[in-house]
């Protein structure tokens, strides 16, 4: 009994601490790109040392559209064009969007963050 009571006190303390944790402002699309995308994707026009294709000027571009980048056959055959709905779908679950793609990425962002990231990304020249 004594131990159980101790556990309850411990859990109560943790809940209390969670309640007092500060809440930050939502992260911007640019910030989300910098943390979650930039290691593999530049915003330039051409492939560089990163393993993913560059994402500058993405809006309205055909999937697998950067010359010189080795896209997966699945992406090449997808017929996708990058718009807000397709970009959100792709970022949310790439495997569901275009099976057999080569991007080994599991989305760690919330739905709102994914939307914000996609909107920002598509606005980049």
């Amino acid at each position: 009994m004594r131990r159980a009571a101790g556990h309850r006190i411990g859990l109560g303390l943790i809940v209390c601490l969670l309640d007092t944790a500060p809440m930050a402002e939502p992260l911007s699309g640019e910030a989300l790109f910098a943390v979650a995308c930039e290691a593999c994707h530049s915003l330039g026009p051409e492939p560089d040392h990163r393993i993913g294709p560059p994402l500058g000027g993405l809006h309205g571009r055909k999937a697998a559209g950067v010359r010189g980048f080795g896209y997966s056959p699945a992406l090449q055959a997808s017929g996708w064009v990058w718009t807000l709905p397709t970009t959100v779908a792709w970022l949310s679950d790439p495997d569901a969007a275009i099976p057999n793609n080569a991007m080994n990425y599991v989305n760690a962002l919330s739905a709102e963050e994914t939307q914000r990231l996609a909107e920002w990304l598509l606005a980049q020249p």
Partner: peptide
């Protein structure tokens, strides 16, 4: 989530940093 090995470590650090940013940035 996605990787194992060295890249898994890097991926996890990135995700943890994102969680900190959500709380404190």
């Amino acid at each position: 989530e996605a990787y194992r090995g060295m890249e898994a470590a890097m991926e996890s650090g990135e995700r943890a940093a994102l969680e900190v940013l959500r709380l404190l940035a």
